Simulated scan of single mutants.
Amino acid sequence: ELNSQLMSTLYKTQSNIHSDFKPHKILWPLVVKNTHCAQIGQKPTAEEAKEEQNLRNSIAWPGLLVQGLPVEFSSDPAKSYFVIQGPAEQHIGGQLVVHVHMQNFLGLPKKHGGDFLIARLHSPELGAGVAGKVYDHQDGNYTVLFPLLWAGVVWVEITMVHPSEAVVVLKRLQKEHPNRGFFKSLFRSGEVSETRFCKMCLPLNHQPLCNYTDPETGEPWFCFKPKMLGCDTRVTHYKADIKQKLITEYEAQFFQSGLNLKCPIDASGMGNVTVLPAEEQNQVKNYQTASGYYYNDSWMPLNAMDMQQFRDPAAITNCLKGKIVYMLGDSTVRQWFQYLTAFVP
């Protein structure tokens, strides 16, 4: 009874402090109508514009974001918890439902959503795992759905990557500093070499530019022209630096490793279930929450795609023989490229 009275008092205190800080600024999801440096790139076709909007809609952060709250009222993964729904034994083809309840550093339930949570269901001894689909109810509660795809003991793992209060900061940086990274290219001809800054957009009236805009996609990319060399002498490209000290001391409190940055959320009650073979009378499979899963450390797609695995250099060489492979992407693609060139002689 004493604990109940204490929690009631704390909850009233929270409401009073909330009132003292009202009105909070409500941040609507950021809407960007024009791509960066659109005045230089080619105008997208109607089909491309529709595809771009669909992509933006797919990554739009759900709901409203509240900013300006005291740190004590931000999400605390150590006090938050998840609860597995259903019995301790379930069957392949079913769906595991998990409820996540976020609490603040006072141990009180959060009143709004927006936290960045990731979830996985895994069996380490089987080399098996699948990602869960997180649904934000916008009131501090979340539902996670996992497809049950293999037999054995499966463990639920929920991680808070960022609290909703940190997401507010990240969206501000996205809006105010969209180009936080600096890139450089090395130009070389004989014994002469120069290094110049490069970006998607550079001031047109500052100094001469080298234009490396993709002629097919219109994707812009520019470098300041070397003083002594031509634009055709560019030999390398690398990330030089990133702008620092863009967040305030108050905002930095929401990015503390081990406290509220990439921290696990523990279970209240059981943290795993045992998955049994599928029941004959119930063969319905709920795979809509995942595109595939890992089993025996191998990727298993759920879209009926025929996957072929190449476990030795000879098999890879035979498959790629006579082919030209284009690898486009970021540093992750570079890692695949480095692995491929190291694995295949």
Rank of each mutant, 00 (worst) to 15 (best):
T35W: 12
T35Y: 09
H36W: 11
A38G: 06
A38T: 07
Q39A: 15
Q39Y: 10
Q39M: 05
I40N: 10
I40K: 11
I40Y: 15
A46I: 14
E47H: 01
E48V: 03
K50E: 15
Q53S: 05
Q53G: 01
N54A: 15
L55G: 08
L55P: 07
R56M: 05
S58H: 01
S58K: 08
W61E: 07
G63W: 10
V66R: 10
V66E: 10
Q67Y: 07
G68R: 00
G68M: 07
G68N: 14
L69S: 12
L69I: 14
P70L: 12
P70Q: 11
V71F: 13
E72W: 13
F73Y: 06
F73K: 03
S74V: 07
S75P: 00
S75Q: 11
A78N: 10
A78M: 10
K79L: 14
Y81M: 01
Y81G: 02
Y81D: 00
F82H: 06
V83Q: 08
V83R: 14
Q85V: 02
P87L: 07
P87R: 15
A88G: 15
H91S: 15
H91Y: 13
G93V: 00
G94L: 03
G94P: 01
Q95A: 12
Q95E: 15
L96G: 02
V97W: 07
H99A: 08
H99W: 02
H99M: 05
H101K: 14
M102Q: 09
N104R: 08
N104Y: 04
F105L: 06
F105R: 09
L106A: 12
L108Y: 06
L108G: 02
P109R: 07
K110A: 04
K110F: 00
K111W: 10
G113N: 04
D115C: 04
D115Y: 01
L117K: 07
I118H: 09
H122M: 07
H122C: 06
H122V: 10
S123Q: 11
P124F: 02
E125F: 06
E125Y: 05
E125W: 05
L126K: 11
L126S: 13
G127N: 12
A128G: 06
A128K: 04
V130D: 05
V130L: 04
G132W: 02
G132N: 03
K133R: 15
V134L: 01
D136V: 03
D136F: 05
D136Y: 02
H137V: 00
H137M: 03
Q138H: 11
G140H: 02
G140T: 04
N141K: 14
V144L: 00
L145V: 02
L145F: 14
L148P: 12
W150V: 13
W150C: 10
